[in-house]
Design a protein around this nucleic acid. Sequence first.
DNA 1: TCTGGCACTCCGCGAAGTCGAGTGCCAGTC
DNA 2: GACTGGCACTCGACTTCGCGGAGTGCCAGA
Lengths: 340, 340
Amino acid sequence: MSLDDRKLEVLRAIVEDYVATQEPVGSKALVERHQLGVSPATVRNDMAVLEEEGYIRQPHTSAGRVPTDAGYRLFVDRLSRVKALSPAERRAIERFLVGAVDLDDVVHRTVRLLAQLTRQVAVVQYPSLARSSVRHLELVPISTTRVMLVMIADTGRVEQRLVELPGPTPGDDVLDMRRVINAKLTGQKLADTPPLVQTLVDECAPEKRNTMACVASVLLETLVERSEERLALAGTANLTRGGVLDFQGSLRPVLEALEEEVILLKLIGEVEPSTTRVRIGDENEIDNLRAASVVSTGYGPGTTIVGGLGVLGPTRMDYPGTIATVRAVARYVGDLLAQN
Amino acid sequence: MSLDDRKLEVLRAIVEDYVATQEPVGSKALVERHQLGVSPATVRNDMAVLEEEGYIRQPHTSAGRVPTDAGYRLFVDRLSRVKALSPAERRAIERFLVGAVDLDDVVHRTVRLLAQLTRQVAVVQYPSLARSSVRHLELVPISTTRVMLVMIADTGRVEQRLVELPGPTPGDDVLDMRRVINAKLTGQKLADTPPLVQTLVDECAPEKRNTMACVASVLLETLVERSEERLALAGTANLTRGGVLDFQGSLRPVLEALEEEVILLKLIGEVEPSTTRVRIGDENEIDNLRAASVVSTGYGPGTTIVGGLGVLGPTRMDYPGTIATVRAVARYVGDLLAQN
DNA sequence: TCTGGCACTCCGCGAAGTCGAGTGCCAGTC
DNA sequence: GACTGGCACTCGACTTCGCGGAGTGCCAGA
């Protein structure tokens, strides 16, 4: 049996009420709070069907109904319209983000803003190195046998690493390397650099090859292998809203998952262009997050994407509002990056 | 009435048992588990005195006793000996810390290690800029009107900021500024730099003074005013051990406090030389942490201190073990820094 | 000063009972 | 055929009660 409009309307009402009250919703309360134009008995029949189809369930016999993950999914896909942000929220976003002095600052402000607006846990990925280009590479002599390698990416990210040289190296040689390296790599996509780095070593004068090889290996690590994607996190305290009821009684697994950068990157970092991705409960591959939902999207200057951001909360979350906020914040951050 | 040795022994036994079992401890259980050489009735009398003095209390009439904050304080100050670390723990520390490639890496490894060993929330402060010296300052031209200012401190910290120049500036001028700035500031304690920065501007050729002033103001911000102290945090999931019993029922306030860098810096950052500081329950000035204890200490190469680290957990914590671990980790990190 | 004994308190826990929200089903109506 | 009102039923949430036990305070005696 397919679902007619009224049944969908009932599902929407259930989701909205449950999200608002956090209590199983019964047929009588439903008709009272929504103008469905039918009697509780009719709603009950609809509910029976919805339950059979797997969109809602009863916590126990003779209790109200609660949406299942599938129910939320249907709600998100077909029953909800993305809410427009309130002027107050728009203002909050602008006020929060102006005055950021550098990338770190932008990311930190963003993640706090997002946590505050959605009242969930917020995660922001720093602009991915994999999607950046080299703006400049600097070699700073620290001692005769050590230099600091500093890479500045066009997204504003700065990475630095210490390089131990094989032997004492005059400052002029360092300057030389710096010139050669910049000539070869500046403006290149980071993803394209590894073969270029190899040619750097090959083309080097034999007596300096050893030194160059050292620098090159650290360079490679920095640029690609380590490919260290960074994250900022905020709003963990929001997990405790709604008592211990959300997250099936224990925050433990969720907190554990939040400590694993790898997991967070999987959630936030895998973004396709211009989509907002919603993962509901079981749709998360990570076991620890079976009781959580994640709303994520990409951001970047203009239409390009340099990183992801999103929020994590209980499956019982205000999807339309959250999606709207996540998108809006991503857009603002993109604009901000475009200005630099 | 003063406390004789046996009463102190009773207090120690209560603390140890309560920490181990998390249950109020009664007189009978106490004489069974510890060789006190007296009867339960005697212990009861001692307990009555200890309670009167404020070192223990009863959750309710006719329940066992639980240490108060004052009880833990006495225990820490006079009744406990710092445990030696097990060889396994020593090995764990070494294994964890070798192979760190840069400061970020050291800090991240340290904080995770600390969380894992103590099974509490760990906090590590990055080497404080206020306690560092300038190793090198670099000006990297980004465009004709923008340079990136990169400061490298002797502690390995690297800070960068974008500087908007008042007008197009030739590369030679930038190199010039770089030379002048380094000549003046390299090797200086960051705390001593502000007046020097001012002289930089004063001594500058008038036609370049404007540009130099721009750089100088950002420099000042970076060096001192912003004085951005950074932190790393790990092990929040450990807060959920021991059920919701610790932290008087709600993790909320604790999680909130952990989100405030300012608060954490207050807890971890204010370190006197070579002391381990233990703040128990109410001794924390922050209201949200009334139910928590913080063990913190300073670290740095040799005997100098460049930053703080520590852990936060329930007042009901294994103080001797935690103190030992925190100290040991701080020492290892200090050694590691000394090598660079 | 310590000990054994004794009466007392009060928490925790399970059993029993009540209340009420909510259900499923069915017969009747439009 | 779809909707409605009515009714019996279920079952969790909450309350009360009673009991057992751990633990206490106090006192008299060694």
